[in-house]
Design a protein around this nucleic acid. Structure first.
Lengths: 339, 339
DNA sequence: CTGAAAGCGCTTACAG
DNA sequence: CTGAAAGCGCTTACAG
């Protein structure tokens, strides 16, 4: 018996069968035209395309996905929508996905492990072909479970290996090294680093810090660490810590650009000139670096390439779920005005 | 005969039937437990939940959606991922969606009408329950076609009516009025406006401009318009135009904050003090307003409320596809340092 | 309170 | 080159 669809939101939707009936062929034939599988006389093909247009037929991707176990869809999962680095990465992923005729869906976790599990579960349930997770701050168990369930996962800047898991790394240590060496070369002698307090023990923070430490070590200089939240306000707090210290630094390498903007603002408000009194170098190269005064010197992560490589890793995971080789991407120092 | 799933990405996935078999009940019963529909002894329920946990069962949302014509999913379609206002709106929509236990999918069109049609079509095909489109810069035909296909559409700041279409407006005219009146009250006498050249004839620009014009009219002042791209760089270009004019303005009301940041930067680089020489007021109140020096005075659009109301409109469209009443949201002047 | 059957819209071997 | 049938994993009236 027919299911009651009285309160369906899409009654009267046009199906493959409607098109087939209209043209007088079988659904099979229409399906082949829709999927460009050839094997159909040009005349029939034309008539079918005309009917599709006329009736406004749109394939039901749910039905297709249910059958093929593919949705030509990838998920991008991040901490916060409003994080500029992340949305710029999303743009890169989107471009790469589009070239492969895939649709990207973007969801955020609010840095919450429970929420991340929900989001991954929802994406899995909706049949995405794979997910790119960045920053993968949530529980490792969720990620491992997702991968174990058969959904390929690509992680950015986080070491985790297993079936259906691939990794893309940015060379964060090299970034810390480049930034610090640049400051040393510019004649700075008291170079501080402002880190993200939440990732002090996290790989992303540690790898930047390792580069900073190595550069200082080679130059025989001492580390000066302050930390704050990974936000503009956290950057302000770091700047206040730096100004309060007796032996004020003449340069700061900051965890990321968002914090660096806070540092820049707070220094400006305290009457410190940048780069005159204190040089500031950020990390990421978000668009805002170029929009503030002084323009922010930073270490650039090429999001376009990162997005592309992440999507490629996802693809290769489909073929070899055992694991694609981890990729490490170069970063680049972008010297502007702040240091 | 069974379909060959040898190259499926998810072989061995656990189904409702697997759970049912394990427990020794029918799929019907498991389905009711999964969907919390009651009508099941607590003991059976417990056994089913245990089996779900043990087997790692996750409902296939594609199959459910195919049958129910609902996916508990909404789409948010915008011009660019990297536009701060838009991602902050996405956060608001996401929060509202979460409270209703809906998953939000976020996609961008790159301001391209063809791309917008593809995105809407993809979302439709994937069975989202409705879409929120902002800014709806693409073709009206696409939007009307989408709505006609049975997919509820909510538009932000764009008048378009029809079956399955609802609108949420921000009171942009009031915003223009508030900003300009504030500048007049602060003693400014030569107040320019920097508009988005691409939306000069668009509602979003015109409504802001109407408020600006009305405030000037009441004070007996003359309009001074410059325009540029709706980007930081467009803002810089506007600032240069303003400085090049013989009768330099003492205030600028800018289309949005992104452009205003460019104005601020360019004025700073030209040795103009803000707000001393020229006051600057933006529009939107993106997070960056608070991160620059001087902090940007602006007209605030409450994205959290906007997101919530947009989702509510989508809901009410399901019940009354004929059309929900358009909603108009207040805006608010946020006075900081730039004007 | 639970089961057996039908079917959502599509694709896939298999015949003709 | 095209058709008829089966089935993806689930939910929904209908019986018991």
């Amino acid at each position: 018996m027919s299911i009651d669809r009285a309160d369906s939101g899409r009654r009267g939707v046009v199906t493959l069968d409607d098109v087939a009936r209209r043209v007088g062929v079988s659904a099979r034939t229409v399906s082949r035209v829709v999927n460009d599988q050839g094997g159909c006389t040009p005349a029939t093909r034309e008539r079918i395309l005309a009917a599709i247009d006329e009736l406004g037929y749109r394939p039901n991707l749910l039905a297709r996905g249910l059958l093929t176990n593919r949705s030509d869809t990838i998920g991008l999962v991040g901490a916060e929508m409003a994080d500029p680095f992340f949305t710029e990465l999303a743009d890169g992923v989107q471009r790469a996905a589009r070239e492969l005729r895939r649709t990207m869906f973007f969801a955020s976790t609010d840095r919450d492990a429970v929420r991340q599990a929900q989001v991954l579960s929802s994406l899995y349930g909706h049949g995405v072909d794979g997910v790119i997770v960045f920053p993968a701050a949530g529980s490792e168990a969720d990620i491992l479970a997702t991968a174990a369930n058969g959904l390929p996962v690509v992680l950015v800047d986080r070491e985790l290996s297993g079936h259906n898991i691939a990794v893309v790394n940015n060379d964060l240590r090299a970034g810390g090294l480049l930034a610090t060496e640049h400051l040393i070369r510019s004649g700075r002698r008291r170079i501080a680093m402002a880190t993200d307090e939440n990732t002090l023990h996290d790989q992303a923070g540690e790898r930047r810090q390792a580069g900073y430490r190595d550069a200082l070590g080679s130059a025989g200089m001492a580390e000066r660490l302050v930390s704050g939240a990974n936000t503009v306000d956290g950057g302000r707090a770091c700047a206040r810590q730096l100004l309060a210290s007796g032996d004020r630094p003449d340069a700061v390498f900051v965890f990321n650009d968002l914090m660096a903007l806070g540092v820049l603002q707070e220094l400006g408000r305290s009457g410190i000139t940048v780069p005159g009194d204190i040089a500031v170098v950020g990390f990421d190269d978000i668009a805002m670096c170029d929009a503030v005064a002084p323009r922010l010197t930073t270490v650039r992560i090429d999001r376009d390439r990162l997005g592309r490589v992440a999507v490629e890793q996802l693809q290769s995971l489909r073929d070899r779920p055992g694991g694609a080789d981890p990729v490490c991407l170069d970063v680049e120092l972008v010297v502007r005005e702040s240091g």
